[in-house]
């Protein structure tokens, strides 16, 4: 099947999912407002903290807000696109995944097209607002290069978070059980990327730079935008590495997913 066909089919399927969510308009709007508010309150807590302190590890409020906004937008994009993968543990448990494998389309495609949870976009709105205010606050001298780094970083950050979701879903092929541990990596990842990595201890900072590369979601791109040196000594062009790192993450995730699908044993119930 040509790629164009997949694309058409994808929109058709997630369109149906979206229409389903719109059936209860009031509750849809309420839920979106809830997602928006939840993260706004998180940011409110940061404002309260900054009201008491001049800076956090040498980072001003505006600079941290820039990280915050970038992380929120990337995470929200990934969270929305990967909503179908939330269903995987339940599908495995109930044996519904068997049915997926009998159809003439890939399991990955069917999963990603199974659902698009639109209310999660509430977080994007919130992230964009904070991002816009933050960049004014720190007065970044924008150049085409910097603008490119920001745009690419938002997309690459989303891809990095997306691959975490895929690996989390693949993990369920072995555990069958739910994904609370996976939440630690997704929500924990947003928590970490909402702060400058300078504040974390050496081993954890190296871990999220070289092994589980959350640092490329927003930290290195933000260092580039703010023209700050890296405490770990990576050169300034590390801010440009996000798409490369994201590609690597996606390759690993794709491998993990197909490995999981190959090793999938039906629960038989």
């Amino acid at each position: 099947m040509p790629l164009r066909e997949y694309w058409r089919l994808y929109w058709r399927l997630v369109g149906a999912s979206a229409r389903g969510q719109m059936q209860y308009k009031a509750s849809f709007l309420l839920a979106t407002a809830g997602v928006f508010a939840a993260n706004l309150f998180d940011f409110g807590a940061l404002l309260v903290l900054y009201h008491r302190i001049p800076h956090l590890a040498g980072w001003s409020l505006g600079e941290v807000a820039l990280l915050w906004g970038m992380s929120a937008v990337s995470f929200a994009l990934a969270d929305t696109i990967a909503s179908g993968f939330d269903l995987v543990p339940a599908m495995i448990r109930q044996g519904d995944f068997d049915r997926l494998l009998t159809r003439p389309l890939g399991a990955f495609f069917q999963t990603i097209a199974a659902r698009l949870t639109l209310r999660r976009l509430g977080r994007i709105g919130q992230g964009l607002v904070i991002l816009a205010v933050a960049q004014g606050e720190v007065a970044i001298p924008w150049t085409p290069g910097k603008l490119a780094v920001l745009m690419v970083a938002l997309a690459a950050g989303a891809a990095i978070f997306f691959s975490v979701y895929i690996l989390g879903a693949a993990y369920a092929f072995w555990t069958v059980e739910g994904t609370e541990v996976v939440n630690t990596f997704t929500y924990g990842g947003t928590t970490m990327t909402s702060y400058p990595l300078d504040i974390f201890h050496g081993w954890l900072r190296r871990f999220v730079t070289f092994i589980f590369p959350l640092a490329f979601v927003n930290y290195y791109p933000a260092l580039y935008l703010l023209e700050r040196p890296d405490p770990l000594g990576l050169p300034a062009w590390a801010g440009w590495l996000s798409p490369l790192v994201a590609t690597l993450c996606c390759v690993v995730a794709a491998w993990g997913w197909s490995f999981g699908v190959r090793h999938y044993q039906s629960t038989g119930s």
Binding site: I53, L56, A57, D198, I199
Partner: peptide, 9 residues
């Protein structure tokens, strides 16, 4: 961790 950093300031 953010608290550790905050109390350093």
């Amino acid at each position: 961790v953010p608290l550790l950093a905050a109390f350093e300031a």
